[in-house]
């Protein structure tokens, strides 16, 4: 754990403890470090407890067969890795929920990135009404996920606005039953999610584009690169860390995808839109299998950690590098 910097200038140290002999032993800096540690220790202990204890309890729970109908957690039977092996080997519903979540996530993130980047590039130019549009484009991500889910549930109703527009454009009888067909339900979820979170990509990429240094771009232009080459060969590599961080943030969020799906489809039809979170929610609150759900949650946590480390791999050194 990082302790706050102590007095780094050796001359400060005698002021702190005038009686301390200077000859042998620790350099004066260590003294300051200890004081820093001592001062922050209570805070660190509290935050460790707050962070770690619930995690440890949940971890313990995942090794039992506890259920709220069966009294105290500590009376529940310890079952070792049974929950985990069940999940990994037998539970195809879990497997499908994971794969489904990954697929939906991949499609959503690709679309959000593409739209966000296009909008950001558009916003690098001057045009009328830019600042108004800017505020408008950022609004979706400020709406509560539950509300977004609710709004799109309304939009996708059989006689809702989406179908009305489709009928107007494509003629009558094209009304779609969005929540009764698996592909359509997945599409509805993806549309909702992309609408909701494209603004985050847009915002991050726009600030990234704005901080791309000007001179390498000008140098590329002078060396004969056309606008497309400038963008892909000079601007995008500079943006790489920003892009990856945007993906990491969104990945962490989207593998927890819950609210919108819950409001739109409750995972249906069948389990066509059942995401990991939705499955765990059902395990816990429909089937009261809390211990089993906890095990699933830990598997997802491990998977997410691995995934994010993988994502960060190409820019890790660049992000951790200390600039002179």
């Amino acid at each position: 754990m990082a302790s706050p910097p102590g007095p780094t200038h050796p001359a400060d140290a005698p002021g702190l403890s005038p009686a301390a002999p200077h000859g042998g032993g620790k350099p004066p800096r260590a003294k300051g470090g200890n004081i820093g540690l001592a001062l922050t220790l209570p805070g660190q202990i509290v935050s460790i407890l707050v962070l770690v204890i619930p995690l440890l309890v949940a971890l313990y729970m995942s090794f039992t067969d506890w259920s709220p109908t069966r009294g105290s957690l500590f009376d529940a039977e310890f079952v070792g890795f049974e929950n985990y092996s069940e999940l990994l080997i037998w539970d195809t519903r879990f497997l499908y929920a994971v794969l489904r979540t990954l697929c939906i996530s991949a499609v959503c993130l690709a679309l959000e990135f593409a739209f966000g980047l296009s909008l950001a590039v558009l916003f690098m130019r001057r045009f009328r009404g830019k600042s108004l549009l800017f505020s408008a484009f950022l609004t979706p991500m400020m709406i509560l996920p539950v509300v977004v889910g609710y709004i799109f549930w309304m939009l996708f109703q059989s006689s809702g606005p989406v179908n009305q527009i489709l009928e107007f454009v494509l003629g009558p009888d094209v009304a779609l039953e969005w929540f009764r067909s698996a592909p359509l339900a997945v599409t509805a979820v993806i549309i909702t999610e992309v609408w909701h979170w494209t603004p985050l990509f847009f915002l991050i990429l726009l600030s990234g584009l704005n901080s791309v240094p000007e001179n390498p771009v000008r140098a590329a232009v002078i060396l004969g690169a056309n606008p497309r080459q400038v963008f892909w060969r000079v601007v995008m590599p500079t943006l790489k860390p920003v892009i990856i961080v945007a993906f990491v943030i969104r990945t962490m969020e989207i593998i927890k995808l819950f609210d919108e799906v819950f409001m739109l489809t409750r995972g249906g039809p069948g389990s066509a839109t059942e995401t990991i979170s939705l499955y765990i929610y059902k395990l816990a609150f429909n089937d009261f299998q809390l211990a089993y759900g906890a095990a699933a949650a830990f598997l997802v946590l491990l998977g997410a950690l691995g995934l994010i480390h993988l994502l960060l791999l190409p820019v890790r050194n660049q992000l951790l590098e200390v600039k002179r």
Binding site: R218, V221, G224, P237
Partner: peptide, 20 residues
């Protein structure tokens, strides 16, 4: 256009392409 003038410019801050 700038890329076709056959004129080179070197900047004070180098402006190399850092990731290349």
């Amino acid at each position: 256009p700038p890329g076709k003038r056959n004129v080179g410019l070197v900047f004070q801050d180098y402006a190399v392409f850092p990731s290349m």
